[in-house]
Nucleic acid binder design. Sequence first.
DNA 1: ATGGCTTTGGTACAAAGA
Length: 260
Amino acid sequence: MKIATWNINGVKARIDTVLDWLKETSPDIACFQEIKSVDENFPRQAFEELGYNVETHGQKGFNGVALLSKLPLEDVQRGLPGNDDDEQARFIEATVSTNNGAVRFGCLYLPNGNPLGTEKFTYKLEWMDRLIAHAEKRLAEETPFLLLGDYNVIPDPVDAKNPENWFDDALFQPESRQNFRALLNLGFTEAVRNCTQAEEIFTFWDYQAGAWQKNNGIRIDHVLLSPQAADLMNGCGIDKRVRGWDKPSDHVPVWVDLAA
DNA sequence: ATGGCTTTGGTACAAAGA
């Protein structure tokens, strides 16, 4: 079973690109971030025609996450628990029942946090605290569980072409990286670093200043697996070529293959 | 470079993104 995550940067602008990618790669599950659409306007029919069940958690203008799955999506939960005042649509979670048992997965769009010194950075760290608390509960269930999405965190210097350019950025702050490590240290396996030792593995290239042409990228989209999910992992990959397509998102898909 | 592009909302630019 192939399960992928992709920040598509607007479903309305990206629909043709996303459909091309689905037809070409045929993931069993796809987690999308930044759909930038309310639920009513999400083009669910186009995805249903490709055989996907669709669940969304959107809002007007920005943010928003969506789940596509060839298997039925069960026990869908919208929103990250822990703060009833948080109105930003950044988390959706569901379960699929496979021949090899149930797999639960969360699709997340972690706050960017820029600029530093504002409530946006505080919100990022608070959101990460809530993600850690939620993940701790899920891990206690000791079942296959994945957290996939745009984490907006550059974990280590090797995850940026030019790490020095990110010293004053929320994505590479010590607090952001520390919270990401705290999440990992609960017991998750981070897919890509466990599938390859290669350097210059990125998932985002800015639209500006020829970042793609210079391979001036960062690795901020991640797949985390519970021990029970990691035991099922057969492989992983990054669909880098998609960044070179017409009308690309600034992010590319990241996927894992599970024996489920 | 103060985001150098891109998307959205709404129909002129402002906000947001990373």
